[in-house]
Design a binder for these strands. Structure first.
Length: 426
RNA sequence: GUGAAUGUAGUUCAGUUGGUUAGAACGCCAGAUUGUGGCUCUGGAGGUCGUGGGUUCGAGUCCCAUCAUUCACCCCA
């Protein structure tokens, strides 16, 4: 049998209803925080990610779906959303508009990774970006939105980790200091970390290997090497969070995997998810726009994995239980007398025109079977048109919830149901 | 990319030391006197036992490969 490619998912009912619910929630919160939607292409020139995300990162080195199109262009299915947003921001002249610009995106990302619960090759990210604001309040605003999403999904026990990784200037100085301490103990490092020593030494900090942890245990901290600007920003962010009573943990080993981050980085974790427990993660990227060829323009944002949000919500306090129902099922026998099915189908058409959701049995089944079907579709009402009804110009309306039945003149059925459905009387 | 576990009807699972027509529950379809759902009862449909090789008189059961899922590492959302 032909199967869907590895790491992809078919989202069918009732899961698709959960997706619709979460997407609506994310859009609603975006509106409250005044983020507007941006939609960028699913693929970009490979160079965009190579430059923005960084040649040394795992994403660029081994996780991209890269291909050449028939015109020989070197393209890549987007592995993340920030670089494309920054590109569009520049290319479409948003940099010249009112600042800061607050945008959100919601769509598929692609990474060639080994799939696991909460990790897929095609996955959906919701993300927000604030471009043009250097303020720590913007960092806070983005973090607050992330925390709010978790709250609204009923996730209790999330932990917010924050850290600062400085700017290129102070990081350069820190890096030398860091290297001095670590290189004498290079022998204790794992294979990966020896490579990191060359390409991206700070990542040794978040290696889980015992030897590596010991090797960097007494290493100087970034926090103590910040330049004035970065130190002020870092202090300001913590003051804001504290003043709002937001609980957070400073994690000096928090170093994100994408090169464009500067100053603030943060992650929101929810442990019950297992190994892939980061639900939302982001940070500041003050150098990205410039890196892409624009004038310097600060930015902050985060990305959330929608699959993980759903997975978490399911395990959380308030599992997603979408109620799927239709207003009215129109029941009519497949009679020799064509007037009966014609009247039934016409009623269905009229109901739908009036905005009442409805369905019928297309398989010509028995009345009993149709009732059963109506029940499974979770119909609130059933409109019955049998020989009797059609002859008398009536329709029998049955409330599936209460069990009562009423005979209503055909011409009044639409109005009657409109009233009922809008929750008028019982 | 590394290590490990799993893979039997739509779904969740049973299938004894390899041995005749592969089972259950739920779901689905159809019935249980008069056109009417949810409960109950009866019957029915539905499985190339992930796929491809191999061992054997004989394999769902053993071996190899492959694909997929899950867990840990890695990485991250």
């Amino acid at each position: 049998m032909l199967r869907a490619p590895r790491g992809t998912n078919d989202i069918l009912p009732p899961e698709s209803h959960k997706w619709a619910y979460i997407e609506a929630l994310l859009r609603r919160l975006s509106k409250i925080y005044n983020f507007e939607e941006i939609r960028t292409p699913m693929f970009e020139h490979t160079e965009l990610f190579a430059r923005a995300v960084g040649e040394a990162t795992d994403i660029v080195r081994k996780e991209m779906y890269t291909f050449k199109d028939k015109g020989g262009r070197d393209l890549t299915l987007r592995p993340e959303g920030t670089a494309p947003v920054a590109r569009a921001f520049l290319e479409r002249g948003l940099a010249g508009g009112p600042l800061p610009r607050k945008l959100f995106y919601l769509g598929s990302m692609f990474r060639y990774e080994k799939p696991q619960a909460g990790r897929y090759r095609e996955f959906v990210q919701y993300g927000v970006e604030i471009l043009g604001s250097p303020s720590a309040y913007s960092d806070a605003e983005v973090i607050l939105l992330g925390v709010r999403i978790a709250e609204e999904l009923g996730l209790t026990g999330t932990t917010l980790y924050i850290n600062t990784i400085g700017c290129p200037e102070c990081r350069k100085a820190y890096r030398e200091d860091f290297l001095k301490h670590v290189s004498d103990r290079a022998g204790e490092l794992c294979q990966d970390c020896r490579e990191r020593l060359e390409v991206n030494p700070l990542r040794i900090l978040d290696c889980k290997n015992q030897g590596c942890r010991e090797a960097v245990a007494d290493v100087p901290l970034m926090q103590d090497h910040l330049c004035d600007d970065c130190r002020r920003h870092w202090a300001a962010l913590q003051e804001i969070l504290t003043s709002l009573g937001i609980e957070y943990a400073v994690d000096p080993t928090l170093v994100r995997g994408l090169d464009y981050y500067t100053k603030t980085v943060f992650e929101l974790k929810w442990p019950p998810l297992g190994a892939q427990d980061t639900v939302i993660a982001g940070g500041r990227y003050d150098g990205l726009v410039e890196e892409l060829g624009g004038k310097p323009c600060p930015g902050v944002g985060f990305a959330a994995g929608v699959e993980r949000l759903i997975l978490a919500a399911e395990k959380g306090e308030r599992p997603l239980m979408p109620e799927v129902s239709i207003d009215c099922f129109v029941l009519f026998p497949d009679s020799e007398d064509r007037r009966i099915p014609e009247a039934g189908f016409k009623l269905l058409v009229d109901l739908r025109r009036a905005g009442i959701s409805g369905d019928f049995d297309a398989l010509g089944r028995s009345v009993k079977a149709q009732m059963k079907h109506a029940d499974r579709l979770n119909a609130r009402y059933v409109a019955i048109l049998g020989e009797e009804e059609v002859r008398q110009g009536l329709v029998t309306i049955r409330s599936m919830e209460h069990g009562w039945q009423k005979q209503v003149p055909t011409g009044q059925v639409v109005d009657f149901l409109k009233e009922e459905v809008s929750g008028g009387s019982s």
